[in-house]
Nucleic acid binder design. Sequence first.
DNA 1: CACATTTTACTTGTATACAAGTTTGTTGTC
DNA 2: GACAACAAACTTGTATACAAGTAAAATGTG
Lengths: 218, 218
Amino acid sequence: MASKKAEIIHILKKEILTLTLTPGTVVSEMTLTERFSLSRTPIRDILKQLSAEGYIDIYPQRGSIVSYIDLESVEQIIYMRSTMEKDIIKSLGGNVPLQGIHQLGLILDQQQACIDNKEDDHDFFDLDDQFHKLIYSLAGHEFIWDMMQQFIVHYTRYRRLHMLKQDKRLSILDDHRRIKDYLVSGHEKDVDEMVHHHLRADVKSKYFQEHFSDYIKK
Amino acid sequence: MASKKAEIIHILKKEILTLTLTPGTVVSEMTLTERFSLSRTPIRDILKQLSAEGYIDIYPQRGSIVSYIDLESVEQIIYMRSTMEKDIIKSLGGNVPLQGIHQLGLILDQQQACIDNKEDDHDFFDLDDQFHKLIYSLAGHEFIWDMMQQFIVHYTRYRRLHMLKQDKRLSILDDHRRIKDYLVSGHEKDVDEMVHHHLRADVKSKYFQEHFSDYIKK
DNA sequence: CACATTTTACTTGTATACAAGTTTGTTGTC
DNA sequence: GACAACAAACTTGTATACAAGTAAAATGTG
């Protein structure tokens, strides 16, 4: 069944995004055929798709490896998200239906719980995505969120490493609260600056490049 | 060699984008193996990739067809381009190096020549894309243009059909000239309105839906 | 004739043998 | 030991036989 392939793709994506499979790790077709008890053909389909989304790099007749993090891609995605979300949030300010506000609040509560319980970063990460996706959705642009997800490999891994360096969860949650406040009231709060501050990152800082040079594309 | 597959993909994409292969046309693996004298395996790779980019829809154990135009996708791409290009053009106004201005001018001259010589729409189309891509490129965001190209199937075909209805080439060229003027001078010209007007389209108009219903996804 | 059943011809999915290329180690020569 | 030539062990690419599912035509049954 087709869902079996989808499941394997999901597993591999997760392992790559959480850096369980580190950049540079060899992922040969034979290895995967044994691990998942499938023949080469469907495994190749899976590798092709992972390759198309930047998760792995296939070198013909040589082998395939987990891709190295491409900081250029990270910068471009951040710029794109920043630009789109400024526009979306402004168009939404003061016009969000009650149920939407409620859903946003629920996510923020869960994020707060994550911090209080000192839980794993993992859930906080997911909730962060849920928050932003919900905003796209409320504006009728879930399509655009989903589309960008196909280019998110490098950005997601970057965020994960960045998180390791310093815990920014409190600051992130605070940003989210301010965004929600604006969406409720629509009162001027310099949305551009707010979103810019929230998503901005000094991607190509020397510190980051030196600290994680093993993971980064040169 | 890998370039052979790339070539076939290029051919099929072109045929689909120019509506030579109309939406709904059956594209079975066997048909393509005969046409291109290749075995099923590489052909399947090609179909998988075309499917991932929305060019065809694969129905397991039933068959594959050229996808119908998804107007929702068209609307979302237009919104995305409009938002991104407003921001990019504003950030670029008055700061474009001389060579960039020159390149923009060259494209506009060629578009003018297209109109004068009453040539095929095809070249004018390509030049339109070249103009916009150059703007992304000048701002250091060619990455974003390329990324969006992976979701451009429906939008490109929509433009083609829209063009059939009425010749908008003069109006388009005029818009481009105004955009170039702004990029040169940086003098306030309500960029938002300018870009919005240029890219906007009444995608889901009854007239369009009725006139090309055979091509449109329901 | 109407309609349910079976058969047939199609489709894509999977498994696997073989081809072709790359890399690494081995061997032979000096 | 230095180094070139060769050989073996990998990799992914390709071809093809077979499996599994779908849809429509053929057939049987009332």
